[in-house]
C-alpha cells in the first residue's frame, strides 16, 4: 500500500529529529496534505499506527489537515483555487493551469516530550 511507505518515511523523519531536537517521545504529528497529493486519510492513519510501533512515535496522534490546491494560469497569470487538474481558468477560460500548491505532504508541527 502506498500510504505504508509514506508512513515509514514519516517515522524516519521523526526518529531523525528526535536526536536533533532532544525528545523522547512524539505525542502528536500535524501533517498537512495537499488536495492533489496521493494520500487517503484513513489508510494513512492506519499505516501510521503500524509504522510507529516500536518507534519514538508509538501511540502518537496523527492529525491530518488539508491544503487547498492553488494554481496559476499560464495564459493570464491569474491565481486560481483548483478543484481538479482539468478546470479552465475562471478569468480567461484557458486550460492547463499550473499547480503551485497542493501536491505536497509535509509535517508542520509535532508535539513532543
Amino acid at each position: 500500500m502506498h500510504e505504508l511507505s509514506l508512513a515509514e518515511g514519516l517515522i524516519e523523519i521523526l526518529t531523525e529529529e528526535a536526536s536533533k531536537q532532544a525528545y523522547r517521545q512524539v505525542r502528536k504529528v500535524v501533517l498537512e496534505i495537499g488536495e492533489f497529493s496521493h494520500v487517503a486519510p484513513d489508510a494513512m492513519r492506519f499505516c501510521f499506527e503500524i509504522a510507529a510501533q516500536g518507534s519514538v512515535a508509538e501511540g502518537a496522534v496523527l492529525d491530518l489537515t488539508f491544503r487547498q490546491a492553488m494554481g496559476e494560469c499560464r495564459c493570464c497569470g491569474e491565481s486560481v483555487v483548483m478543484h481538479s487538474r482539468y478546470d479552465a481558468c475562471p478569468a480567461c477560460g484557458a486550460y492547463g493551469i499550473r499547480v503551485v500548491e497542493g501536491e505536497d505532504m509535509s509535517i508542520k508541527y509535532i508535539e513532543v516530550v
Partner: peptide, 8 residues
C-alpha cells in the same frame, strides 16, 4: 509537551 515547528 512542547510544540516543535518542523516543515519537513
Amino acid at each position: 509537551g512542547r510544540m516543535i515547528r518542523l516543515e519537513r
